[in-house]
Simulated scan of single mutants.
Amino acid sequence: MTADDSAATRPESMRILDRACVIVHQHVTTAYPPGASLPSTKQLALALGLPEKHVHQGLLRLDSLGEVALHTGSLPIRLRPREPHPRDRALHGAVRDRIRAGHYRPGQALPTGLLGEEFGLLPHHVQRALRFLTAEGTLRYDEHGAFGPGHYVPVALAGAVS
């Protein structure tokens, strides 16, 4: 089975939504520089000629990827490259502090479900936050880790978290 075969078996409504999300992504990443506020969902829908619900879904996907920040108390914002999502900052600080304090030890898998509950983040938002920490080297993702696939404290990092 190829990717085209699996796409062909998806309902037409899902394929339309996927295309709309691609359009929203392309528009946002080319028309708005990092750090810029985006127009409202309604204004984007009018500009793109798409249903408002499809534009909203596209923005939700961009939020999950860490490309934009929604629900910040104002209009959506296009995030800068390597800029953490505003809702992830508390989790970032806590993980760094816990590594520094020895609460999370080198080689230990992070309890992602518990972290999500503690910080009020959905599982895909926890993954977004941990991708950021992995990119900066605070964590490592190991598909074949000792406790299964997951995010682990790197052995070399032990006392080096700043």
Rank of each mutant, 00 (worst) to 15 (best):
T2F: 01
A3W: 09
D5N: 06
A7S: 05
A8Y: 08
A8V: 04
T9N: 11
R10S: 08
E12G: 08
S13R: 14
S13P: 01
M14A: 12
I16M: 11
D18V: 09
R19Y: 12
R19I: 06
V22R: 10
H27G: 00
V28Y: 00
V28H: 01
A31M: 04
G35S: 10
S37V: 03
L38E: 03
P39T: 03
T41R: 15
K42R: 13
Q43F: 01
Q43V: 02
L44Y: 04
A45G: 08
A47C: 03
A47E: 10
G49L: 14
E52M: 10
E52S: 12
E52R: 10
E52N: 07
H56D: 14
L60D: 04
R61W: 07
L65T: 05
G66A: 11
G66C: 06
E67K: 13
E67Q: 13
S74K: 08
P76L: 07
P76Y: 12
I77K: 15
R82T: 11
P84E: 10
H85W: 07
R87T: 05
A90R: 11
H92S: 07
V95A: 15
R96F: 10
R96Q: 15
D97S: 15
R98K: 13
H103Y: 14
H103N: 09
A109G: 04
T112V: 08
G113I: 06
G113W: 10
F119V: 07
P123E: 08
H124P: 02
V126Y: 01
Q127E: 04
R128Q: 03
R128D: 02
L130N: 03
F132E: 06
L133C: 13
T134F: 00
A135T: 14
A135G: 14
R140E: 11
Y141W: 10
Y141I: 00
Y141R: 09
D142A: 08
G145K: 06
A146M: 07
P149L: 01
G150A: 12
Y152C: 05
A156M: 05
L157S: 12
A158D: 14
G159E: 12
S162N: 09
